[in-house]
């Protein structure tokens, strides 16, 4: 089961220039909340920005990561 810190590191490693703040929402290790800022979000819709973050985790979303609540911002 991933930790909030692992999720943060994976987002920051995968999306250019990204900074992520991730918290374990329920303390149960499967519902996370992330605020992600990246210059790579420029010109993308909010939907596309969220898809970029979800793409980092592929099938793990809905699996071991039950939910990843997102807020994305261009930086």
């Amino acid at each position: 089961m991933p930790t909030a810190d692992e999720i943060k590191q994976r987002i920051e490693a995968a999306i250019p220039g990204a900074r992520a703040e991730v918290e374990d929402w329920t303390g149960g290790g499967d519902h996370f909340r992330a605020v992600v800022t990246s210059p790579a979000f420029k010109g993308k819709t909010r939907l596309q920005q969220h898809q970029m973050v979800y793409a980092v985790f592929g099938d793990e979303i809905g699996g071991p990561i039950h939910a990843l609540s997102l807020k994305t911002q261009e930086s």
């Binding site: 909010r46 939907l47 969220h50 609540s69 997102l70 807020k71």
Partner: peptide, 11 residues
């Protein structure tokens, strides 16, 4: 067209 999930709809 897909609008999004809970976060996007709430925002």
């Amino acid at each position: 067209e897909l609008i999004g999930g809970c976060d996007i709809v709430t925002e």
